[in-house]
Design a binder for these strands. Structure first.
Lengths: 152, 152
DNA sequence: CCTCATACTTCACGAGAATGAACTATCCAG
DNA sequence: CTGGATAGTTCATTCTCGTGAAGTATGAGG
């Protein structure tokens, strides 16, 4: 069992690198820099959100968000909509239709993932899900620890 | 079996996000931007390499590498050494000793990963390794496809 | 040797993006 | 209704970083 440890360490590193490079490739394909890509991801996943919510998530000041959203809006990936409940606010809504060739990439990705995962039985699948869940948990914990140098 | 598919899609997204945020947190902790972090990773993993090798990997011109390496060298993460076989070249060598608090993070990460992985038996472990291998393969393939918009 | 190519650096410049102050519009508490 | 707080934007400024041209040093072929 001991030999798995170093093996997994290498695999973890390679997977991590592959994920990062994949993200970078997507951003480049969309013509977005890191901050814009991150912002778009947040808007797509967390649904319509006000501008102010984005600033702390991105780690930039509120003024920078205006520029980031300007570029995303100009590219057509998001649009600004007034918040009906608070007219000071501007809700950022992802424009799904404006991601032309990327849907093909994600479709390919999903198809290929599904293809090789079809070979797993229930117990193997459960183990994989467990592995992923725990990896996410551990990564998040270490990320928090990295952001907070002095946990007093 | 069908319900796994959408479940895995969400997990894939979350894992991917966690990995990216972890990388960003490391870079910030080291005081490095994306290019510098990427360069350091390449030097650490692929051993001593000449400056010129880095430029295409980072997607920048050779002149930019000088600045990137300057910052890495000033921070103490790498040092320049003359190539004994070709005195025009400058070899970039990672300085392992200059990563103080980060070794603790990686030690924690490895320990926690090892901890929950101890519960898997051989067959489960094999499934997980297979999953990781295939995911890496698929991600790399899609990354290439993204970089090359017109595969003629 | 002499010439040309290669490896890296230096420098001046320019593009991109984040910042803080100031401004407008809106909400809310008293 | 009035004063103060909040949401977002605009503007001028500043900073970072990559580029291209030019310079230095070294290697390789005739």
């Amino acid at each position: 069992m001991k030999q798995w440890v170093s093996l997994m360490r290498d695999y973890g590193w390679e997977l991590s690198t592959a994920v990062v490079l994949f993200h970078e490739a997507i951003a480049r394909r969309l013509g977005l820099n890191a901050a814009e890509h991150k912002a778009l991801g947040l808007i797509v996943r967390s649904g319509p959100m006000p501008t102010g919510t984005l600033a702390p998530e991105l780690g930039v000041g509120p003024t920078a968000v205006t520029g980031i959203v300007d570029r995303l809006a100009r590219a057509g990936y998001v649009r600004r909509e007034p918040d009906p409940t608070d007219r000071r606010r501007v809700l950022l809504v992802a424009d799904e239709s404006a991601v032309p060739d990327l849907s093909g990439i994600f479709a390919d990705l999903g198809r290929e993932m599904t293809a090789f995962m079809a070979a797993y039985d229930e117990r193997e699948m459960a183990a994989i899900v467990d592995y992923i869940e725990n990896t996410i948990r551990v990564l998040r914990a270490q990320t928090v620890k990295l952001a907070d140098p002095d946990p007093s």
